[in-house]
Amino acid sequence: MSTTPSTRALRDTLGRYATDVTVITTVHRRDPIAMTINSFTSVSLDPALILWCIHRSSRRGPAVTAARRVGRSWPV
């Protein structure tokens, strides 16, 4: 089963999110990593790209930028 969202589903999801503080997560060396960010935006639907900005001195930045996958919490 594919976990890749359809373009329509991605557009609908990102369209509901204007701007706010959010949390992104990943796993690095078997350890969960989470970052609170406030600079999350959609860039492209095809290919599906999102953007967030991480300060160079962030301790979690290298782990998050090296990750193959990240998750994002969506506000309810």
Rank of each mutant, 00 (worst) to 15 (best):
M1N: 10
M1D: 11
S2D: 08
T3Y: 08
T3V: 14
T3H: 13
T4I: 06
T4G: 02
P5C: 03
S6K: 02
T7L: 03
T7I: 09
T7D: 06
T7A: 07
T7Q: 09
R8S: 07
R8V: 04
R8L: 07
R8F: 01
A9T: 02
L10Q: 03
L10A: 01
L10M: 03
L10E: 00
R11N: 06
D12R: 09
T13I: 06
T13D: 03
T13L: 09
L14P: 02
L14D: 01
G15I: 10
G15P: 07
Y17D: 06
Y17E: 09
Y17V: 10
Y17I: 10
A18W: 09
A18V: 08
A18F: 01
T19K: 14
T19I: 05
D20W: 00
D20T: 02
V21Q: 11
V21H: 09
T22F: 04
T22N: 00
T22C: 03
V23R: 06
V23D: 02
V23W: 09
I24R: 05
T25N: 08
T26W: 12
V27W: 11
V27E: 15
V27L: 15
H28R: 07
H28G: 07
H28Y: 11
R30A: 14
R30I: 11
R30Y: 13
D31W: 08
D31L: 12
P32S: 01
P32L: 03
P32N: 03
I33Y: 12
A34G: 04
A34Q: 03
A34L: 02
A34I: 00
T36H: 09
I37W: 07
N38C: 04
N38F: 00
T41I: 11
S42P: 04
S42T: 07
S44D: 09
S44T: 03
S44A: 06
S44W: 05
S44V: 02
L45K: 02
L45G: 04
D46S: 10
D46F: 03
A48E: 05
A48M: 06
A48Q: 10
A48I: 00
L49T: 01
L49C: 01
I50R: 01
I50P: 01
L51H: 04
L51W: 00
L51Q: 14
W52N: 02
W52Y: 13
W52K: 01
C53A: 12
C53E: 10
C53I: 14
H55P: 00
H55D: 06
H55N: 03
R56A: 08
R56S: 05
S57K: 07
S58N: 03
S58C: 00
S58G: 05
S58Q: 04
R59D: 10
R60W: 07
R60Y: 03
R60Q: 12
G61C: 05
G61T: 05
G61L: 08
G61H: 05
G61K: 01
P62Y: 15
P62T: 14
P62D: 15
A63I: 06
A63R: 06
V64A: 09
V64L: 09
T65Q: 12
T65I: 11
T65Y: 10
T65A: 12
A66C: 04
A67Q: 13
R68T: 15
R68F: 14
R68D: 15
R68P: 11
V70K: 14
V70M: 14
G71T: 15
G71V: 12
G71D: 14
G71W: 15
R72N: 12
R72E: 11
S73G: 15
S73K: 08
W74G: 11
W74L: 15
P75H: 12
P75A: 10
P75R: 10
V76T: 12
